[in-house]
């Protein structure tokens, strides 16, 4: 079970959280302006890297807040957690 640092509550066990998949995919401001291919890309295409991955997490059984995290998918080490809408301080090609 992972230990995840909620930006508001500190370290909490994974069971309190829900993972929301890849982070930094903003909903297009005007979806109607997108071609079918662009919309399909937005909807369905996600990265699945071996290494550092920016993910969305929600402290569902805690403060209820969504936030972002950089997690190394190989070691499961969290490099950092940071608020929704912000950018990580470390680059996503940082190695664990």
């Amino acid at each position: 079970m992972l230990l995840i640092a909620c930006p508001h509550c500190g370290n909490r066990p994974e069971t309190e959280f829900r993972c929301g998949g890849q982070a930094h995919i903003a909903r297009p401001a005007d979806p109607a302006a997108l071609s079918d291919a662009q919309w399909a890309e937005h909807l369905f295409v996600r990265a699945n890297p071996r290494g550092v991955h920016a993910e969305r997490w929600c402290h569902a059984h805690g403060c209820g807040r969504w936030f972002n995290a950089l997690r190394d998918t190989v070691s499961d080490r969290f490099l950092e957690t940071y608020p929704t809408g912000a950018q990580p301080t470390q680059t996503s090609d940082a190695r664990a």
Partner: peptide, 13 residues
């Protein structure tokens, strides 16, 4: 509720 919170917090804060 989770669906609503997700949009509210992450798309339309």
């Amino acid at each position: 509720l989770a669906h609503m919170e997700d949009y509210l917090q992450t798309e339309w804060p």
